[in-house]
Design a binder for these strands. Structure first.
Lengths: 117, 117
DNA sequence: CCCGTCACGCAACCATCGGTTGCGCATGGT
DNA sequence: ACCATGCGCAACCGATGGTTGCGTGACGGG
């Protein structure tokens, strides 16, 4: 049950800078490499590279307008990414719950034996 | 609302190989570098390095027993990681819902105007 | 007891990635 | 016409995920 995950999508979202970029793009509606670099502690070129990988996995789309290149989040694709996050989270959560249940059962049996003595 | 995230924990879980290792460790209860490397497409040394970073962020703990070093998942820490995944997921999900709501509202106004003509 | 084997750690090496600086080019405002 | 702005390309750097090769300590059957 390894929760089928698109590794490209996940690792795109795995980078903290890219996550913050997505946050900003979602908050503002859109943005350019320069506008994002002004609000993040990295250079415009670094942002540009990140926008490249986000674009490659379809998490953002770009529209050229004059000398600007405005990027916008692809909501459907981000929704897919969110789904994968919660999918993996849910799988692990389920396993953790089962482990906890078993541990409690064992503790219970020990208690009974202890009380018996 | 950037969903306070421990970048170390996230990036530990961000690697696909490490995710699969955690899956295996959860499924089997524990494991060694060699046992994991037999079930994953990477060498024992790669696994050992990954176990190192997982240990550094507290996602696994190791117990030496003879010539083996058995690793076991720290359930509390993994629970924290899961919480962070769902936290970020929820934040983005909320934004996406708001966008969708606004989009629908606009579409509605357009419909009304269209019907009015 | 001793030798082979098995699990491990250490080190060197390589490709990729996130990040930087420096440059050149085109578009746009005055 | 000119200068500023936004961008892309290239070179470089450190960290990281991965490999191969080797040395070493624990274990078990002759």
């Amino acid at each position: 049950m390894t929760a089928a995950v698109d590794d490209d999508l996940w690792s795109a979202v795995g980078d903290p800078t890219r996550r913050r970029m997505l946050d900003l793009l979602l908050a503002d509606g859109d943005g350019t490499a320069t506008s994002l670099s002004e609000r993040l502690p990295v250079t415009r070129q670094a942002i540009a590279k990140h926008l490249g990988v986000l674009d490659r996995v379809g998490l953002v789309h770009v529209t050229s307008s004059g000398r600007e290149r405005r990027y916008r989040v692809d909501e459907a694709q981000l929704a897919r990414a969110v789904a994968q996050l919660s999918s993996v989270g849910a799988a692990w959560d389920a396993r953790l719950r089962r482990i906890k249940r078993i541990a409690e059962a064992i503790a219970l049996r020990k208690d009974q034996r202890g009380a018996q003595q």
